[in-house]
């Protein structure tokens, strides 16, 4: 039955992807009717990158969140709460505005480096198996520092339009990305997701504690390094293209573990499917915002995710953490 549910989530994510390509149908239909080539170009070069980026970024956040939570043995460890996404954003901003290498490739490298640095700093600050409070405080400190440094970098940037330029990107946006940009996010993310999924076995057995996992022959130092590097690679590349999007990496693994009977490692692929579905839904929601404008997608995920986070903290407070 669980496999059925997991498969259904994957199918739903793909249906959402299709819907994201085709909706709003009226504008696509009008374009296709008026000029078939123009309509196809619109579909391929505007709608496709946006829909595919939602799929890829959501899946990346879900799987990285699941792997990081499994590694720390803590349901509140996620790419955003641990400061990974802010570190990636800082890396991308410094690369683009201070170093002046504003190509997607250079920004992706900067973002991956920033994400890697923040994850290593987190392990240095919070320890390998961090208590919730330590982990959140360390993550908060890293986020605050990275946020301040990002603002500083934008203030010191040679371009006077840096703030304005970076603002919508920093809030998270899937709009107006090109097919090559999709590639810069999707290729590292796909590699990271598939590789992380291969670590499901050792991450499951980490539930028994580090000592037992080691006695079963798992090299935890190597496991930790792989998860940090893969999460930094995938999340960093996505942040470089789409900016920082919060809460998907927190929420998706929590739902995913409900489908895997609490097993944290084998929740990685289901978390990828749930993350993809959630981000596609958030993107669709942002498209149909009644304001007549498009909301930044990061705002949508935060509006839904932050109350969920509060509910989760309240549950943990009363000792019902999952």
């Amino acid at each position: 039955m669980r496999h059925g549910v997991i498969l259904s989530v994957g199918v739903l994510a793909l249906l959402g992807f299709a819907a994201s390509l085709l909706l709003p149908w009226s504008s696509l239909q009008a374009l296709l009717a008026a000029d078939r080539d123009l309509g196809l170009t619109f579909l391929l070069e505007l709608r496709l990158p946006r829909a595919a980026l939602a799929l890829v970024y959501g899946a990346m956040l879900g799987s990285a969140g699941a792997a990081i939570q499994a590694l720390f043995g803590n349901p509140l460890a996620s790419p955003d709460l641990t400061g990974t996404t802010s570190g990636a954003a800082l890396g991308a901003v410094v690369t683009a505005y201070i170093i002046g290498a504003a190509s997607s490739f250079a920004m992706a490298i900067g973002a991956v480096a920033g994400a890697l640095a923040s994850l290593l700093l987190l392990i240095g600050l919070a320890g390998r198996r961090a208590e919730t409070a330590t982990l959140l405080l360390a993550g908060l400190a890293i986020s605050a520092l990275a946020g301040a440094l990002t603002t500083l970098a934008l203030a010191l940037a040679p371009s006077p339009f840096a703030f304005y330029d970076a603002y919508s990107w920093l809030m998270g946006s899937l709009i107006d990305r090109s097919l090559p940009q999709l590639g810069f996010a999707a290729v590292p993310a796909a590699v990271a997701i598939l590789w992380l999924a291969r670590l499901a076995g050792p991450l499951d057995r980490l539930a028994l504690g580090e000592e037992v996992a080691e006695s079963l022959g798992h090299d935890l130092g190597r496991l930790r390094l792989q998860i940090i590097c893969l999460s930094a690679l995938g999340v960093g590349a996505c942040v470089a293209i789409c900016g920082a999007i919060g809460f998907i990496g927190l929420v998706a693994p929590i739902f995913a573990r409900r489908l895997t009977g609490g097993h944290a490692g084998r929740a990685i692929l289901p978390a990828a499917a749930i993350g993809a579905l959630l981000l596609i839904l958030a993107d669709l929601a942002s498209r149909f915002a009644p304001l007549g404008r498009t909301l930044p997608i990061g705002v949508v995920t935060a509006l839904v995710g932050a109350p969920f986070f509060l509910w989760l903290v309240a549950r943990m407070r009363w000792g019902m953490a999952r």
Partner: peptide, 21 residues
């Protein structure tokens, strides 16, 4: 190896936990 600590990370069912071993 059975460690002295009885801490567990995730709320698994007993049989699932034993199977992990």
């Amino acid at each position: 190896y059975l460690p002295a600590s009885r801490d567990l990370r995730w709320p698994l069912h007993p049989r699932d936990l034993i199977a992990l071993g």
